[in-house]
Design a protein around this nucleic acid. Structure first.
Lengths: 345, 345
DNA sequence: ATGTACTTTGATAGCGCTAGCAACAAGGAT
DNA sequence: ATCCTTGTTGCTAGCGCTATCAAAGTACAT
């Protein structure tokens, strides 16, 4: 009596191809993974069968049998924030031409989500991982350390990474922007911020440090919201700053979107930039150079962080762990019209 | 003689947990997938073992044994274009709380890449697929049709989708924007476009149709580049239009980034908007409402397309295929200052 | 003819998990 | 006592692929 077989996927398998080409299954497997090991005649015959049957290898079975995958998991807070968009471009450029593929996870700035995603990803036994920032929850940290695959933390800089790290100091960067405004003679310098994630808070700390150094610190100058950042939020934030401190004469923002929104609000109020008011953004997004006036901003190397991090993780997977596990990509103040006040240094 | 065992993954398995909890492997499996079927006592004991060992189920083995996955593959041309960013937000909102997970693939607007990605994705035996547009290559079409999993095409509208579709007519939308400019009395209306993908070309067709209808068509008015779209490209495109047709009096653009770049260029040239020059963007991105002047644009429902498409694919996976397989999300002309010319209708 | 080295193909036994049944106990109805 | 039901647990046999070893074929030198 025929035993009832369990449900199959219904899709063609290696064995189907093997039968069609009249060879053994393992030969088909080899023809795909290591073509040089199979004679040209067979190789061609097998390829023909694959095409006619429409065979696509089952990655789950491959992963299970070979105990490895070519997946690099990437956990970021947001796929839709233009800052991470640049990181992602770097990631794709570094992955191009390698046998690896990327799998993105989006925490939406939630530590709980991050932990869930981490578990999900580890279930896939990834070859390597990129995670955003250095503020993982204790549970997440334990999972990462226990897992054993190469991990690169990106975007932030700390001295003792889990494994490897590519980032820069948000605190120092924001302090530099603020000092630039101070050097231009601005005195009542506001800080506008949305999203309020860890890195935003580091930027606020940098701003505060620079303001305190100059004896200009005033907590009323800091206007924040926890809403997700967008250009249209810069407008009300800027308005709020004016109502709190009517004689404010400059703003350092958390990012360029807020700066652009603030710029539009100032144009509406007919406040002249940079004479009556200076603006310094953060990230130096594409539009800073063409806006009118051009926006002074702090350039960050987002594309490079993504690219470098992937290169490092691939190197580590391949056994060539970089000797320098921490890379500081730095930042650069780019001065444009929005802070070029006449008659000032 | 002990037979040499093959390489294991080294990570804890179901059997390890089972031994620790002193039950059989299948019981552990059940405790995870279908907790109600296991007595509370055992369930707790098993959970304790899982935690202490740090067990994470191997998804490859799960997929192989159960012949199904909870992966929905999503193939889009760009992860970093803000248009798709909104689609992605919709996707995530629709996926939230379901047992499904998403896997993104980025074709970078290349049909070859799309085909490669499709093969890669089909290898994972996804539960469903979202693909961008309706212009798949013949090979890609064949793969999709042969595969059998639910497929939703998004962003564009055609009448005979592969399976299901959520989109709108780019041609009609661009025609509406152009007609709006015509109705405002603008005559020499340029069209600025970057990226030049299929949907951009449909928009150009819509623009041409509206211009021809009004007897205003002039090919010199169409200025395009194949470079990827960004705000800073709007500036040179606008400058090029001026040098070709010095008395141009309006522009319809391919998207809002180009419109914003053009706006900045016009501000620099001290061309007054909307009196000397009208601008109509495309997509109605967030900054259109706050820019100065506010940008007239054609609102498209990107978030809704992403959300709806995922809902449809999940419904189809669950056997509740929507009775209406084609959804037209439409578009809406949003009139703002950039086309509100004084003394015109 | 024989040995050695190399190339090419195949047989076998899992990888870690789950489907499909089987087994068994406990309780209630007949 | 017997049957059925319900709830709980375990056994067995794969899912589709690849690692490992073995075998057969080929080429060349001895």
């Amino acid at each position: 009596m025929k035993k009832k077989s369990r449900k199959r996927s219904g899709k063609p398998t290696l064995v189907d191809v093997a039968e069609a080409a009249n060879v053994s299954a393992i030969t088909v497997s080899r023809a795909l993974r290591n073509p040089e090991a199979v004679s040209p005649t067979l190789r061609e015959r097998i390829q023909k069968s694959i095409d006619s049957i429409g065979y696509v290898p089952n990655t789950a079975a491959q992963a299970l049998a070979s105990a490895r995958t070519n997946v690099i998991g990437i956990i970021i807070p947001s796929l839709t924030n233009s800052v991470f968009a640049d990181v992602i471009r770097g990631v794709y450029d570094a992955i191009e031409g390698t046998p690896f593929q990327v799998q993105f996870g989006n925490t939406n700035y939630s530590p709980i989500k991050e932990e869930e995603l981490l578990k999900l990803f580890l279930g896939q036994r990834p070859a390597g991982l990129l995670v955003t920032g250095a503020a993982q929850s204790p549970e997440a940290l334990q999972l990462l350390r226990a897992n054993g695959c190469p991990v690169v933390q990106i975007m932030e800089k700390i001295d003792d990474p889990i494994d490897m790290l590519v980032g820069f100091s948000h605190e120092d960067a924001a302090a530099e922007g603020t000092r630039h405004l101070i050097s231009k003679g601005y005195k009542k310098i506001g800080f506008l911020a949305a999203q309020m994630d860890v890195r935003t808070q580091q930027r606020i700390v940098g701003y505060e440090r620079a303001m305190r150094e100059a004896g200009l610190y005033d907590p009323r100058l800091i206007v924040t919201t926890t809403k997700p950042s967008r250009v249209s939020l810069g407008t009300p934030l800027c308005a709020e700053l004016f109502s709190r401190v009517p004689d404010v004469d400059a703003v350092q923002t958390n990012n360029d979107d807020i700066a652009l929104g603030a710029l539009f609000e100032l144009q509406r109020r007919r406040v002249s930039i940079p004479d009556e008011m200076g603006i310094c953004g953060f990230n130096d997004l594409n539009y800073c150079q063409v806006s009118h006036p051009g926006l002074t901003s702090i350039r960050t190397y987002r594309y490079e962080m993504g690219k470098r991090a992937v290169e490092m993780v691939i190197a580590a997977i391949s056994g060539n762990r970089p000797e320098q596990p921490v890379v500081d990509t730095g930042f650069l103040l780019v001065e444009r019209e929005s802070t070029q006040r006449a008659g000032q240094s």
